[in-house]
Nucleic acid binder design. Structure first.
Lengths: 201, 201, 201, 201
DNA sequence: TATGAATGAGTCTTCATTCAT
DNA sequence: AATGAATGAAGACTCATTCAT
């Protein structure tokens, strides 16, 4: 009876509509920023009417949240999923190097998305919370992966945290700043050394 | 050509007014976010009228910029200034530990400021550019400081970059997240070891 | 590129809304002047919300432009359309006299409109351009009409220009000023004589 | 005692200040329009403070009124003053031609001033009234001049009115519009013929 | 007298959200 | 379910005018 209820779509067509809105919203917000994107644009980009947006989403903010939930894993730590069947301490460094390169590629692909979402993380508690959870999960996955591959378990969570931070900073540096005076190949080497040092016994 | 010029105040009273606006604007923006703070609020917080704001600032954005310029150095890398007269490779680790603790204290003091500014850095080119410059300067200062104290000069810029990133992440982690499962004292140790490893030889 | 597009309405309801705004805007602007009429008033007079105005018009100025385009022909040179089936040099003077009287009536009906629009013509290039075009068209129509009715074609454009000016001034004088000392019937006679003198061989 | 009184300056310096403001205000308003000129600009142009303006003028509008009173005669019908010592019906046409050319020159010199003032005349009753008076005076001066030079006195006021209107339109046409298709020399001739026809017995 | 900093009401415009169809 | 027209509160900015110095 209550018209103002948000519908969780079950029909295929409705689900498609909701997804279109999420994608359109996320694309535009990543491109132009949350406050510089209005709902009319999102609706237009999604090829739906403005009214229908509010059948599937409580408000504009909700669109972003859903977008982040949907696309976050594509943007952050994407290479983590890549199972390395043959992984050991000996070839770890080179596998990490591959991972870093993939991270960088990914950063480049979704540069503005990454930027904008990080901006929102800073000013939006709900989003911050989401990413906090996300980060914990990612960290744990890596911790477990390393444990399963015989790495020293002492303070492994802390070490992975630091390592992830190192990689994140590195990618950010390489993708956004391009300092004239910095030798990025050397920097990657240095970071890898740090990580290997961290993880070793 | 344009009718309304922005005045750079010279008289004491005017300078006070401008400073009040900068402080009020910066405080509110840091507390509530740029888009959730309006000019009327800023004026009210500064105990001035809305109109006077535009005598000293081109627009709302300009208030933020000035605020950042004024307070950035208080918020970011504040301890860098502290010249340690007796600094050498032997006591470096403990001095770095002191610095990190100061960083953390500082982060805690201006937590929301830090958050909001980082958010703006991500979505605002002018601010990003400002911090890029700021970061380069900071890095160079540290590089020179280390050189003068006998540290290995090879790839020192890269190393300092990495070290600053490590410290930044560490502070952020400690101040904002407080993961239940993480031992922060141990984490500080690990980061310090990383840094010492980086800088040695 | 821009987020908010101006809609050209096609549905009956939308067209009515747009027309209501044009009429309300034009009425108020003519009554009180462009700078003394605000958009809220226009919306209220049109019985719509302030927001909807900007769905159909780029800005306040645009409302005036559309109003002028819509109502200009009702206000200026309205009698030109009246084709006189039986027109020749003999009865021309009396037909012109009828036209002048119609002009005067029209001036009286939309006195403030005429005033305000002429004011805007003076200070607004877009409007000036519009009226310039409008005036050329009117002049040409009259020129052709006279040619078709056997009037001397030499310098006819110049003559019609002068004649239109005479009529315009006359109407203006009669409608607005009402000098105590002026005999307007005689003045009409004198103007008609001028015109007949102009148009004769 | 009443601080809010407008002072009519008597001291030389004060008069100069008031005149500077009038000139600055009039210049700017003519150049950019009344609503596009603000008091701060006027004060700046006059090299005085914004506050002082309100010691000499009731409000912004008052500045314009004073400006018009001061400069109107320089802008409208300036050549009327030129006494033609030897004037008779025979050489009248050529003298009128000279006057028209002077009118045109004058129009050109103060084109924007003329435009803007005419705009204000349309939307401002006080200014309209002023010009009405001014026009009556001018007309009477010319009427008397013509009487004194032996022109037919019947309906002379009406005739002069019409003639002035003809000249005004002509100047306007020549200065502002420059229609491609119009021969202005011929037009001047035609207007002069009209006037001579009007004034002849 | 004179300054110019300060006031604050007023204006245009935007946009998240609602609602008639 | 869907449309898109309509709402109206809110916000950035302007400027005639006042007032402390």
């Amino acid at each position: 009876m209550d018209q103002s209820e948000i519908k969780e779509p079950v029909q295929k067509r409705s689900i498609e509509t909701k997804d279109k809105i999420i994608k359109a919203g996320f694309d535009l917000i990543c491109e132009k920023g949350y406050y510089n994107t209005n709902t009319a644009e999102i609706a237009k980009e999604a090829n739906v009417s403005t009214g229908i947006v509010y059948r599937y989403f409580k408000d504009k903010h909700d669109i972003l949240i859903e977008g982040i939930k949907t696309y976050a894993s594509n943007i952050f730590y994407p290479a983590i999923d890549i199972d390395t069947t043959e992984f050991n301490f000996k070839n770890a460094k080179e596998l990490f190097r591959d991972m870093i390169n993939k991270f960088i590629e990914n950063h480049k692909l979704s540069q503005t998305a990454h930027e904008e979402i990080m901006a929102m993380v800073h000013s939006d508690n709900i989003i911050a919370e989401f990413f906090h959870e996300y980060e914990i999960t990612t960290t744990n996955n890596i911790v477990n992966f390393l444990k399963n591959n015989g790495f020293d378990e002492s303070n492994l969570t802390e070490k992975v945290h630091i390592a992830l931070g190192l990689v994140d900073n590195l990618c950010h540096e390489i993708v956004y700043h391009k300092h004239e005076s910095i030798n990025y190949d050397k920097m990657i080497d240095l970071v890898l050394n740090c990580i290997m040092e961290l993880l070793k016994k």
